[in-house]
Write a protein that binds this DNA or RNA. Structure first.
Lengths: 214, 214
DNA sequence: ATTATCTATAGATCTATAGATAATGC
DNA sequence: ATTATCTATAGATCTATAGATAATGC
């Protein structure tokens, strides 16, 4: 554990304030703002910006990466289950529920958009691992997991955009329906998929609290 | 038919040049450029820009809309078939193939990203119509078509991003695999889906030529 | 003494318009 | 005569740094 001097802490605070401001702006799709506006929102001096980042692009990229990590670390808390279809179903249902619970974080991800589903960080590698496990166990159809994961990722993002655009939609029902669709796609019968998506799910708020400290 | 004066033609040419320049920039993800750079790329005077658009946002939005229309009009050429599953399968296979054939156009759509799948124009209403027809005919599972269309749209975009990022991928195979996945999701058996996706497809180049005049 | 932050600002860059020029209409 | 385009530029806006100030380290 590297000793955190008071200087380091101060530095980290400033950096975090800048990133939080960037995430706020990303959620509003306003990335084309002067640096001064960012530092005002972060409540730090203009010069501090250049202490931490070389330009706006670098800041915004960092802000998206951190949001992705947050999402991923929440899903990592999901307890295991012997049936890979159950594991994946839980992940899907939880991910979509998280989008409703964390709209600001979700909008940050939506801004980066589809590049996320191509990336080799965040949620995609987790999904690919789960799908491959299901195929290996004979629980899923034998299919190209790169393409399957692409559909799942794009579908999840697209559904997140839909939930964001229409607050009147029932997010829990949409999440379960999404999971049913994906499980059917992977070869489960309609009834099997429905059954899995009726199982108990860990409390979303509880998971959020448990990852906040990180 | 409104008589096109020579003035109108000149005006339309300038406008089209600006939109083409904007699409070029969108494909390179460089929307944050000075107006002067856009007009240079379009080979028109700076002032002409303000003759047609009030600001850059308006131009870029128009540029994306036109690209979407182009895609949609190509799909409209697909001939009908009595089985809704065949119709939809053909659309899916063709859409993904188009992405490989028209990478610049595809990148324009990727820039707009997921907002497309929420929009009520372009490909989404066509997909929703096809899915609803399939459900009504008892060929697809009875499911919420809003969510299904969201998955299809997001999945297609995500796959387009994947094909764009990795030119070595076999687009035809990916397109067919994508369609199989979606048809399975909609309740078809694995073997039915595979069979549909082995059927003959209209020639992509031919369809492109037939819509170029529009 | 060192390191981080803040304030002030020079210079670069960009927007948007006014007025000139060129093309078309009749 | 009218309409579209083009050129030149005033004024606004933004970036990025230099130097001052404040906090921390030892």
């Amino acid at each position: 554990m590297p000793t955190q001097t008071r200087s380091d802490q101060r530095r980290a605070r400033t950096r975090a304030a800048l990133i939080a401001a960037a995430q706020k702006l990303l959620a509003e799709r306003r990335t084309n703002v002067p640096v001064l506006e960012i530092t005002r929102l972060a409540d730090v001096g203009l010069g501090s910006f250049y202490n931490h980042f070389t330009d706006k692009d670098e800041l915004f990229e960092t802000a998206v990466d951190e949001a992705l990590e947050r999402f991923g670390s929440i899903l990592d808390l999901l307890s295991d289950h012997e049936d890979p279809a159950v594991v994946f179903g839980q992940s899907l249902r939880l991910t979509v529920r998280l989008c409703r619970r964390e709209p600001a974080l979700t909008r940050v991800l939506l801004h980066r958009g589809l590049e996320i589903t191509v990336a080799d960080r965040g949620l995609v590698p987790r999904a690919r691992r789960d799908i491959d496990a299901g195929i290996a166990a004979g629980r899923f159809r034998n299919t190209d997991s790169r393409i399957a994961v692409s559909i799942v990722g794009g579908g999840a993002l697209s559904l997140a955009a839909l939930l964001d655009a229409d607050p009147s939609l029932d997010a829990d029902a949409a999440a379960d329906d999404f999971a049913i669709n994906i499980l059917c796609m992977l070869g489960l019968s309609d009834s099997d998929a429905v059954e899995i998506c009726r199982m108990n799910l860990p409390d979303v708020d509880d998971l959020l609290v448990r990852t906040e400290s990180a």
